[in-house]
Nucleic acid binder design. Structure first.
Length: 514
RNA sequence: GCGGGUAUAGUGUAGUUUGGUUAUCACAUAGGCUUGCCAAGCCUAUAACUCGGGUUCAAAUCCCGGUGCCCGCACCA
């Protein structure tokens, strides 16, 4: 589906819309409506159940979104992105404008505005440090962080966090105590991060306020045991950097065992990459042919990332594969920086007493906003007859639509059934408006996996089927009559979130019936 | 941020070339009728010229500017 068409459906149904829409909207900011907010919450909850469920050593925390300036100074966000930047038109690399100018004109470049630097770059015939071209862009200020002020007046300078990962690094020292001083230690954060994008585009893919779900795993690189056997035979669609830079971008199905034995990936990395892939397949329900694991080369990665695979999903609305998440091996960069910045020793004693160690970090990062769009792109379709959103049932905003067949006669019973189901913890959408066909159509469009209809038989005290309802399945439109107990059981199963077994073992032998 | 395109009810549109009635139609939404299980039908209602300025007796229509969106380039630590 094209992006406009899809966005129109999502807006009309109240999934999402531009922030401050009545003022014409604001670039890069979006609000989620009832369906969108619920769906996003379900995605986040599914992510949490899956990844925090990977190990009892992985914890979920909820830190503040504002961090003091010292934090982003230590992380490098402040230093690297406050100064004006120029881009080389020839090799398309970007540099800090003042350093480029300094190379061409060693005397005094401090305190100049971006415009003044721009003029001097031209008059000094400054050259690109990479390729030597003089075709440099006009410098532009480039700080992607939102500054805020704490307290009265100018107060203390602070920033909206540019990534949730920083919150986990800040929490490491405390969590080291809370987690009873053991590695590996996983710290998961789900929350908003803020970047002042120069040009937000593509809706949920380039936002100024967006949600990240990230698991930072702190570990000893000499010892990070994982149950690799549980995923060893799983084939992953990988695009390695080597072949890719040589011109071959085809994803190659490679087993996890192969990635370790021949592919050069550490076991802990391959294991978590495998479970990341499983999450997209099994929880989000993305078809295999739409997913690829795209390895970033040395040049493409941030310098502190040692290994990086992006998880990309092919989206028709955005014209190709788009990154939804990634797995980064960040080494000891983060704790080293914050150790230096805070003056706190973030190293720990090695268990074998052989000295101290700054824990390494494996980062599993995921964008719930992007995932929500991906679910709409991949699973929402119009077939001429109806619009159908094939959301996996645990993610659907509503698990069941409850309808009266004839409004005047059956609404009362439908209401009481709906309230019974809500008390059972089921997510219910009671719809009494319009005709029965329209209600089914609305439910299909919202991705509601089941609908039940209250009819004459249901409300007839004399009927042996009193209290039963017709249960209709979204994808097949198939119907059958069920009793209330069975209905609750079916709906409970449907909305139960998936989580991976911490360690997969062979199923115990079960004697065949008879 | 640069260049190009574009903007009419919730959605999709007619009307703009050549200024001139109460701004067209469909779907959607809400209510009514219909004893009725997949957007049926009939009746009724709600609902729009992106914003600001200008030209003109008169502007959805012409001119200028702003904003949003789309495409390309750049950016995406």
């Amino acid at each position: 589906m094209k992006i406009d068409e899809l966005y129109a459906i999502l807006r009309r149904r109240g999934v999402l819309w531009p922030t401050a829409e009545i003022y014409g909207g604001t670039q890069g900011l979006y609000d989620y409506g009832p369906l969108g907010a619920e769906l996003k919450r379900r995605i986040e909850e599914a992510w949490r159940a899956w990844f925090v469920g990977l190990s009892e050593d992985y914890y979920w925390i909820d830190p503040a979104e504002i961090v003091p300036e010292a934090v982003v100074r230590a992380s490098g966000h402040l230093e690297n992105f406050t100064d004006p930047e120029v881009t080389c038109a020839k090799c398309q690399k970007s540099f800090r404008a003042d350093t480029v100018l300094e190379a061409a004109r060693p005397d005094g470049v401090d305190g100049l505005s971006p415009a003044q630097i721009g003029e001097l770059l031209v008059s000094a015939h400054a050259r690109c440090p990479n390729c030597g071209s003089t075709e440099l862009s006009v410098p532009r200020p480039f700080n992607m962080m939102f500054a805020v002020s704490l307290g009265v007046g100018d107060g203390e300078r602070a920033y909206l966090r540019p990534e949730t990962a920083q919150s986990s690094y800040l929490a490491f020292a405390r969590m080291w105590e809370v987690g009873r001083k053991a590695l590996p230690l996983g710290i998961a954060v789900i929350g908003r991060a803020y970047r002042n994008e120069i040009a937000p585009r593509q809706l949920l893919f380039r936002m100024r306020a967006f949600t990240q779900a990230e698991l930072q795993i702190f570990f000893d690189p000499a010892s990070f045991p994982v149950p690799l056997d549980s995923v060893a035979t799983l084939d992953l669609p990988v695009v390695r950097a080597g072949p890719r830079l040589a011109g071959n971008e085809t994803a190659v199905l490679t087993s996890v065992a192969d990635l370790v034995s021949h592919g050069g990936l550490p076991e802990f990395y391959a294991y978590h990459l495998a479970h990341t892939y499983r999450f997209y397949r099994e929880v989000l329900g993305i078809p295999a042919d739409r997913i690829r694991l795209w390895e970033k080369s040395n040049e493409e990665r941030a310098f502190y990332n040692r290994i990086q695979f992006d998880v990309e999903v092919r989206l028709d609305s955005l014209g190709g594969f788009k990154e939804i998440g990634a797995v980064h091996y960040r080494g000891d960069y983060d704790l080293t920086r914050h150790g230096a910045g805070s003056g706190k020793d973030l190293s720990i004693a090695k268990p074998d007493g052989s000295g101290r160690l700054v824990p390494h970090v494996l980062e599993l990062t995921f964008g719930p906003d992007r995932a929500l769009w991906a679910l709409a792109d991949v699973e929402l379709a119009t077939d001429g007859e109806r619009t159908l959103w094939r959301l996996p049932s645990p993610l659907a905003p509503f698990t069941v639509g409850v309808f009266p067949l004839i409004r005047k006669l059956h609404t009362e019973f439908a209401r009481s059934l709906a309230s019974t189901l809500v008390n059972e913890g089921i997510r219910v959408d009671l719809d009494t408006a319009g005709t029965i066909g329209k209600r089914y159509a609305r439910a299909d469009e919202a991705g509601t996996p089941y609908c039940v209809t209250v009819d004459g038989t249901t409300v007839d005290p004399a009927s042996p089927d009193h209290g039963t309802v017709t249960l209709r399945e979204r994808d097949s439109k198939a119907q059958r009559r069920v009793r209330p107990e069975e209905l609750v059981a079916v709906l409970r199963v449907a909305q139960h979130p998936l989580r991976p077994p911490p360690v997969e073992r062979p199923a115990p032998a079960v004697p065949a019936p008879e």
